[in-house]
Amino acid sequence: MKALALFKKDWQSEMRTRYAINALAMFILVTISVIMFSIGQEKISPHLTGGLLWVVIFFSAMSGLSRAFVSEEERGTTLTLQLIAAPTTVFNGKLIFNLVLVFIMNFAITILYSLLFESFTVNNMPLFIVAFIFGSLGIAISSTVIAAIISKASGKGTLYPVLSFPILLPLILTLLEITKFAIDGVTISESVVEIASLISYDVIMLTAGYLLFDFIWKD
């Protein structure tokens, strides 16, 4: 409940300041437009569009998800949070906020993508939905942990994608593989290894987040 109250505070604050949502919306529009202009009249393969989908999602996440902690640090309200909540509450609250943002962002990107790219055809929708759900979870969890780390550092804007790349790479590679399977119409039972890797990644990152957050949160 306390974490939910922190999420409500963050959401209300976001609705008034539009720190993250504007950044995400602009990035999604610009990136998809650039891809469309680059492709032009060319006919690209479904596998390539599937890959590009996760590239757009990865870079969009980089542009907006760090705000959960960075905005607190930049405004000087980190101390206020430290005085009203236990570290676990803060982590949970920020995680819920990033989860909501990631799911909205990924849903918007996928819908736009499906409408604008004819070659993006998924033949096994349930498999794609599994990748979408666990992939979004993984991105939200990792982004929350990384955002907490970089919020204390200088050069936050540069550090976030640099630190995110090696941490998110195993996730993105697995998602690319599962998306390829979904486009090819491979069944879920034939993709068990990849799905297990995806879920394992989420569980490992969540556990690491809870173990590390106390140390990250306190100076």
Binding site: K2, A5, K9, T17, G76, L79, L83
Partner: peptide, 29 residues
């Protein structure tokens, strides 16, 4: 168990004083 006041403590500018306090009470539980 603790209350803290300092010049470097910053509350949320985008909320009113009452909204700030309501949020803090809920986050504290």
């Amino acid at each position: 168990h603790m209350g803290f006041v300092s010049p470097y403590l910053v509350l949320y500018d985008e909320f009113s004083a009452e909204e700030n306090l309501k949020h803090f009470a809920k986050i504290r539980g």
